[in-house]
């Protein structure tokens, strides 16, 4: 029995040290690329069944707390401070890239466009969720005005916030979605939250809501939207600050 017990303990120890087995996987490698191939499977499977279905919406009674701020909670630049000081009256959303009509939409005009209100659950990749009421202009309304060219496949969101202060300068947040999510009715550019102007810590003046994906897709402090046919030229080539750091570009799970 003692031999057996030793065997068992030895097995357990081998199991524990097995946790360092994939430590090398944090760097880019063929094995990581192979395992990450499951992301394509997830996206393909979800896209097969998801259609235009809506993310669950909740009632006002389900809003029990403020929206938990995460990631950047402010923007440290003179340009942003000046905009904030005048209540974002000097802010204009830029729409550029593969569109027939590039746009520059002033804040007052944005908030006057047809708006959608939705009470939805925000799911962070870390694991927590928070329910809040979002109000803003559907991205499809903006796209209809800008008229994307036929080869436009992705909407890239360039943001004011420096998510990283590196030696080579600040890295401004960037994120992207494809036209399926860009045209989804719940995909809005929110300028209000819980019946008030969008707070700075939650991304004022404008933040994206992509309700069928995780929180990091929902770029805050949106400066401009660029329509592109490929993500190759965006950041390190994966189209998203966090995707360039190993997270999924398609964050439906």
């Amino acid at each position: 029995m003692i031999t057996r017990r030793n065997l068992l303990l030895g097995g357990a120890a081998a199991g524990l040290s097995g946790c360092t087995l994939l430590d090398g996987l944090t760097d880019d490698s063929g094995l990581r690329a192979f395992l990450q191939g499951a992301e394509n499977l997830t996206m393909t499977a979800q896209r097969l069944i998801i259609g235009n279905s809506l993310a669950p919406e909740f009632t006002a009674a389900d809003i029990r707390q403020g929206q938990h701020p995460n990631g950047s909670t402010g923007v440290d630049s003179d340009e942003y401070r000046a905009m904030r000081a005048d209540g974002f009256a000097s802010y204009s959303l830029q729409v550029t890239g593969l569109v027939e009509r590039p746009l520059s939409i002033p804040y007052a005009q944005l908030t006057g466009l047809p708006a959608r209100t939705q009470i939805t659950r925000h799911d962070c990749v870390e694991g927590w969720s928070c329910i809040a009421k979002w109000m803003g202009v559907p991205l499809s309304v903006i796209l209809d005005q800008a008229r994307p060219l036929l080869n436009a496949r992705f909407a890239v969101f360039n943001c004011f916030d420096a998510i990283e202060h590196g030696l080579g300068g600040d890295v401004l947040y960037y994120e992207s979605i494809d036209m399926v999510d860009a045209r989804h009715p719940q995909t809005i550019l929110a300028w209000a939250m819980n019946d008030r102007a969008l707070p700075v810590q939650n991304g004022a003046p404008l933040r994206l809501r992509v309700e069928r994906q995780l929180g990091y897709k929902m770029a805050k402090y949106v400066r401009s939207i660029e329509l592109v046919d490929s993500l190759a030229g965006i950041g390190a080539g994966r189209g998203s600050y966090w995707a360039d750091r190993g997270y999924e570009w398609y964050a439906g799970i």
Binding site: C19, L21, L25, T26, G37, A38, T42, R245
Partner: peptide
């Protein structure tokens, strides 16, 4: 503790890559 997480250090993105591959 590090002995019970894979990878051993804090690496959420890599943990998710491993988790979803083996979930499938």
């Amino acid at each position: 503790p590090a002995a019970l997480t894979m990878p051993s250090g804090q690496a959420l993105a890599t943990g998710r890559v491993i988790h979803f591959f083996f979930a499938w």
